[in-house]
Amino acid sequence: MTTVDTARLREPSKEELLESYRVMRTIREFEDRLHVEFATGEIPGFVHLYAGEEAIAAGVCAHLNEDDYIASTHRGHGHCIAKGCDVKAMMKEIYGKKDGLCHGKGGSMHIADLDKGMLGANGIVGGGPPLVCGVGLSAKVRGTKQVGVAFTGDGGSNQGTFLESLNLAAVWNLPCVFVVENNGYAESTSTNFSTRGIDIAKRADGFGMPGVVVDGHDFFAVYEAAGEAIRRAREGGGPSLIECKVNRYYGHFEGDAQTYRAPNEVENIRRERDCLDMFARRVTDAGLIERSELEQIDEEVRALIDEAVEEAKAAPEPGQADLLSDVYVSY
């Protein structure tokens, strides 16, 4: 494992910090609102919320350009928002509406926007990492400076596709970054059980690539590690693995009673390690940003999510012809 070479990294500007805060707040508000709306029974299907893990998506995507690619997971809303997907179109998608980002055909687990470099949330655990190897290959062959980032859970890191992708990316020296979001659980199963207590980042050693562990609640820790890995990838230095240790605020999916968790487990984390609180404290203590500037963002985001939900509920359903369209480009 290597340490982050901070000397080569630029500090984020005030504008960039405000933007990252807005991303994190948008994700939080989006997810908290879905938690409430899901309980009314109006949202179809499975919904996996990203609340608590916002610093990872924001800290990684802050370094990505629009033409860089990410591949996400079933817990994908945060990645989508951080990569620039339209929040209102996402909400419509989650409600299964015609003007949703995937025209109501994908839903929460499959939100994608290729124009934004968002290769899709994914219903298949471990589905994303191989795709990101392909993105890396494409960038390399076409001689662009694009980078691909795969987000995977701790559970997903036990999938053959993940481990094969690490090796392939190393062997082909691809501009890829593998980000493991270790939130301690895969459904109800603890990471302690499924990975025998080692840091997942250690697996990088076995494939000859740098691997680091960072605090996934800490935007600045993620930002630094991701900056280094993405820079290395862009400059032809090959793939890296970043393990972010983090926590999930809600159940595996909405409706999960979570009897496998300790009492107060989430309350304690929310109180002590909330990524938004930590961010706000740090930037205000350092005198970089005024509290009121953050509050203004909070307000704007709240209004945006209110509108998104309202519009999604009122939006038209897909029509019967939509059932048969878009199976092929041509046939």
Binding site: S188, T189, T191, Y260, E265
Partner: peptide, 16 residues
């Protein structure tokens, strides 16, 4: 996967 559930976790066994 999760045929019992709660493996290695602090809460209930056979959680799922």
């Amino acid at each position: 996967e999760d045929n019992a559930g709660g493996a290695g976790a602090p809460g209930e066994d056979d959680a799922w």
